[in-house]
Design a protein around this nucleic acid. Structure first.
Lengths: 262, 262
DNA sequence: CCCGTTATGTGTCCACGTTTACAGAGCGGC
DNA sequence: GCCGCTCTGTAAACGTGGACACATAACGGG
């Protein structure tokens, strides 16, 4: 089993992981005190299900804790399941042969990921890493086939989700191809801000990502990203703190997202 | 209705269209002599349907001819339908404000495109242009909702198609972000070759695209693409003719697709 | 409070690819 | 067979962003 994928993995989780911040020291793992039977409540994929049905599905989805930095899946642990992120955040990314990485998405609680392709397809070359301690429910692929795909209500929602994902990726692709880093950074900040969970007390909304993580999403280096962000910061458009960014002037950001500069 | 989108459109179809080869002189349009009731035969989306059902669907999908260079849809002619490409080829692309374009896909006969998002979503910012004279069937969005989404057999196929598309786009995204042009070109040629229709008499398989069209797919300039292709040509890996490329040494191409060069 | 670890700020070089500007080559129409 | 248009080849100057190399600053645990 020590095949080519393991090489990639070894490189990926080796000491000087170039694609990710290093791991912290391990500390005891505890499954949270939360009710194990509420994985699906916040997941809009299952919004059409009755309370009864949801309980039944929940039964099949055991939760597991992942430590910060831990891989949820990879090539050596192939994805034969669908995951539901209960708490914490997960980063989906891909690697090239030479160890460089691009982040596909950073998932917030309630997200569903893994074997999205439904019916035979694989999520090739994708890795998932917990960037915070995370609780994740896991649904076996057989259950998925039996209960999700066959259910038209859920099938429709899956189509919709995938369709939205395609649209988002098309957007990202053109941005990456044709827009300068500054504009891309501005756009990304806007959508990250929209996706960010609002602060507990009304006004505390912030993007909780490091420059390195943002760079991973942009397909750029950490240095270039830092420079772009510093640029916005000195203009008062954003405000930076270690690992958190708050937007001060959304209008200026939007205009920075389009202006390519003559 | 002469809003901002029309500006983009005007720029897009103006005389010096930077994103596309110019149009040829118009010539008389004739709907082909083909049977109007065979749009769906080759479309695997409908593979599960009985002959009876397929005939019924066909009734709802009138065919139309598009001339080379003609736009199948755009912002000023919003997509409220699903299209089925019967003959000819279509290029799906996006524009940025400043008129630069990226090609999302070049579709061969049998492809389905348009309102893929099913249920409210729009195919934002996407344009479709016939790059050859094309016959295209068109299904109204109401029919799509009524007959396609509600049919579980088709819904599943849609999910699968979308899933595959997501996987392809993820691949493309990482390639664009992290791989040099030469490697990307090699990869693209390989997949184009796989997708290309084999010649009528066994051995005539060729990629029938101009450098400009390939550049559009790569997210690169025509010049840089030409250079990369010339590079492969002098090494005997490919063979070029005006608007057609044939692969001579597939193995060498594959290795060029991975070698990033130390 | 101190110290290791992790995140951020610069700064320099240079390669890849864009931009711009032309020149030749194949094909099609007249 | 000639002419025009579309494709392709080439080459210079430029610039964004990548690679590398440190310096500094904020955490956070002991």
């Amino acid at each position: 089993m020590s095949d080519k994928w393991d090489e990639g993995l070894d490189a990926a989780i080796g000491a000087p992981r170039p694609w990710s911040p290093g791991q912290r020291e391990p500390y005891p793992l505890t499954v949270g005190p939360d009710d194990p039977f509420n994985c699906l409540n916040e997941v809009d994929l299952f919004a059409d299900l009755s309370a009864e049905e949801m309980r039944a599905m929940d039964m099949m989805a055991p939760a597991r804790m992942f430590r910060r930095g831990e891989l949820v899946f990879s090539q050596s642990q192939p994805v034969t399941a669908l995951f539901i992120l209960k708490s914490g955040r997960v980063r989906i990314f891909r690697l090239t042969e030479d160890g460089k990485a691009l982040t596909m998405a950073i998932l917030e609680p309630g997200a569903v990921f893994g074997e999205m392709l439904l019916g035979g397809q694989r999520m090739y070359d994708n890795y998932a890493e917990a960037i915070e301690d995370a609780a994740i429910c896991q649904l076996g692929v057989e259950d998925v086939e039996r209960y999700l795909i066959s259910d038209p209500r859920i099938a429709i929602r899956i189509s919709r989700l995938l369709g939205e994902q395609v649209a988002r990726m098309e957007e990202r692709l053109t941005d990456l191809a044709l827009r300068p880093l500054l504009a891309r950074t501005a756009s990304l900040l806007i959508s990250l801000d929209a996706a960010a969970p609002s602060g507990r007390f009304g006004q505390g909304k912030a993007i909780r990502l490091t420059h390195e993580q943002i760079a991973g999403l942009l397909g750029a280096t950490r240095e270039a990203t830092s420079k772009a962000l510093a640029d916005f910061a000195v203009k008062g458009i954003i405000r930076q703190g270690r690992g958190r960014i708050t937007i001060q002037n959304a209008a200026a950001l939007s205009s920075a997202a389009v202006s390519s500069g003559p």
